[in-house]
Amino acid sequence: KKYKVVEVKENKDGTVELVVENENGEKKKITLSKEELDKLKAGDTVELK
């Protein structure tokens, strides 16, 4: 499934919390490390299994 990044929030521990949404409007929260996030920004599309 493809999800669009709608919100990006940095946590104090250096991880980043993303809120992503698919075309049905379903939202998910995922947490990434700073390194994983470096290639993402709001409006990008991510694929989740």
Rank of each mutant, 00 (worst) to 15 (best):
D38L: 13
N22H: 07
K27E: 04
N11H: 09
K41N: 06
K2Y: 10
K28H: 14
G43I: 03
K49D: 15
L37W: 13
D44S: 06
V8G: 01
K29Y: 14
E26F: 13
L40E: 01
E7F: 13
E10Y: 10
E10H: 13
K12L: 11
K9R: 12
N22S: 13
E10V: 07
E23W: 11
V16C: 13
E36I: 12
E10T: 09
K29E: 05
D44N: 06
S33V: 09
K29H: 13
G43E: 04
V46R: 01
N24F: 13
D13M: 02
E47K: 04
Y3V: 01
V5F: 03
E26D: 09
K34G: 14
D44L: 05
K2W: 11
K4Q: 02
L18T: 01
K4L: 06
L18G: 00
E17V: 11
E21A: 08
G14S: 02
L37E: 03
K41E: 09
V16G: 08
Y3F: 06
G25K: 04
N24S: 10
V16Q: 02
E21I: 08
T45S: 04
N11S: 06
V16F: 13
V5G: 01
K28G: 05
V8L: 09
D13P: 01
K9V: 11
K39Q: 09
D38V: 12
A42G: 03
V46P: 08
V19L: 10
V16H: 05
D44V: 05
A42S: 07
L40V: 15
D44E: 10
T45C: 15
E47A: 02
K27V: 09
A42L: 14
K39H: 11
L48D: 12
E26I: 09
S33P: 13
T31H: 06
D13Q: 02
N11D: 04
D44A: 05
N24I: 09
D13L: 02
G14W: 01
K34T: 10
N22T: 08
G25N: 04
N11E: 05
K4I: 08
V6M: 08
K2D: 01
L32H: 01
K12P: 12
I30S: 01
E35P: 11
L37R: 13
T31G: 02
E21R: 05
T15H: 04
N24M: 13
K1N: 07
K1C: 15
E26C: 15
V6D: 01
L40A: 08
V20T: 02
Y3W: 10
D13F: 03
Y3D: 00
S33W: 15
V5M: 03
L40G: 02
N11V: 04
A42I: 15
K28S: 12
A42Y: 04
V20D: 00
K28D: 05
G43L: 03
V8S: 04
V19G: 01
T45D: 14
L48N: 07
V46S: 03
L37P: 05
V16M: 11
V5I: 14
K29R: 14
K39E: 13
E10Q: 07
E26A: 07
K41D: 05
K34N: 07
K4H: 02
E35R: 14
V6W: 10
V6A: 02
S33R: 15
E23I: 07
K12V: 09
V8I: 11
K39N: 14
K12C: 14
E7A: 10
K2R: 10
V19D: 02
E21H: 03
N22G: 13
T15P: 01
E10D: 12
I30P: 00
I30Q: 01
S33T: 08
A42Q: 08
G14M: 02
V16A: 09
K49W: 04
V46M: 04
K1G: 07
L32Y: 12
K27S: 07
T31P: 03
T31A: 04
V20N: 00
N24E: 12
V8N: 01
K29N: 10
V46L: 14
S33A: 12
E36P: 12
L48E: 10
E36L: 10
Y3L: 02
N11F: 09
E21F: 04
K41Y: 06
K39W: 06
I30N: 00
V16E: 00
K49Q: 15
K12F: 10
